[in-house]
């Protein structure tokens, strides 16, 4: 296991280097000029030329790349062209908010999705099962911005139960977490149900029942544990994507996370901020995947990496 971990960690370096190269090239070919965004609507050519020179934007691309990688190796993601603040500081400042939202959304999704899935597989064709199928269908069909606005309209504007947006405490977390987690609820419930149905047909479940075990013990201990692998996969992937910023949810609910930071950076062609964010978020994503793989081994002893 430790060898596996070391190998995977070593593989991070080429992965992130690849990410760096691709981002760098993409930003280079994308239209739009960072200096034009810095100077605003009205500018004179002299100022633009001076800023281009100061930012080394006229250097050959390989030179710019080597300079950037040199900084990254020293742990320096550079300074934003627009805000003149350290990019790493800005990302670290926003990441806790993203972590909170992603955690709350996953908690909601896991609790709801898995219980509905288990219940549905245990009583296939029952009311809960059919309702959850419809719910899952709607859950993946409605775009998050529509659901988000609807939630605000119903729970904040009409009933005044919850605040519409912002990040001033646990109450503010509820609506964005519901909006963000909804798609995962749908996936998880269907995934759990399918995996459970298969397991519930198996011989050892029949044996467990034959031994006279209680139904709760059969379903939750014997069956569910074996149905957990695909569920962990969905959990890991969704958590990874939530952690790398949920631009729409964060925008609608004025949530101060990394997604909005990336969006602003792209809109203003703040090149070092875009590069730094993508690098940072790639690292987060790869690490979450690594953790997911390790959870596999924990869940199923047959999965051995060495």
């Amino acid at each position: 296991m430790s060898r596996f971990l070391l190998t995977r960690l070593a593989l991070l370096v080429p992965t992130l280097l690849g990410v760096l190269i691709v981002t760098f090239l993409l930003l280079y070919v994308a239209p739009g000029d960072p200096v034009q965004a810095m100077v605003g609507e009205r500018a004179d050519p002299e100022t633009i030329a001076r800023l281009r020179a100061e930012l080394h934007l006229d250097d050959p691309l390989p030179t710019q790349f080597v300079r950037y990688v040199g900084g990254v190796v020293r742990g320096d993601l550079g300074t934003s062209y627009i805000t003149h603040r350290q990019i790493l500081d800005d990302l670290l400042h926003r990441f806790p908010a993203t972590l909170q939202l992603a955690g709350a959304a996953m908690l909601f999704a896991a609790l709801t999705g898995i219980s509905v899935g288990i219940y549905g597989s245990w009583r296939p064709g029952g009311f809960v099962d059919r309702a959850s199928a419809l719910g899952a269908y709607l859950g993946v069909s409605f775009p998050v911005y529509w659901v988000g606005l609807l939630l605000i309209l119903v729970f904040a504007v009409t009933f005044r139960w919850l605040p519409p947006s912002g990040a001033r405490g646990p109450l503010y977390l509820i609506l964005p977490a519901l909006a963000l987690g909804m798609r995962s609820v749908a996936f998880l419930s269907r995934m759990t149900r399918a995996a459970m149905q298969e397991v519930l047909q198996s011989d050892y479940v029949r044996t467990a029942r034959a031994k006279g075990l209680g139904e709760g013990r059969v379903v939750l201990r014997h069956a569910f544990r074996n149905a957990l692998l695909p569920v962990v996969t969905v959990l890991g992937l969704d958590f990874g994507s939530y952690l790398t910023g949920s631009i729409l949810t964060e925008t609608i609910f004025s949530w101060p996370g990394v997604g909005r930071y990336v969006l602003t950076a792209i809109e203003k062609r703040d090149l070092p901020a875009v590069q730094g964010s993508i690098l940072f978020l790639s690292l987060v994503f790869v690490l979450v995947n690594l953790v997911t793989d390790m959870v596999y081994a924990r869940v199923d002893p047959r999965v051995a990496y060495d």
Partner: peptide, 18 residues
Amino acid sequence: VRIIPEALTQGAEYETGN
């Protein structure tokens, strides 16, 4: 001075008195 990017959310914040 709140930072609220979405226009419809701005409206909702106003309607709830915030």
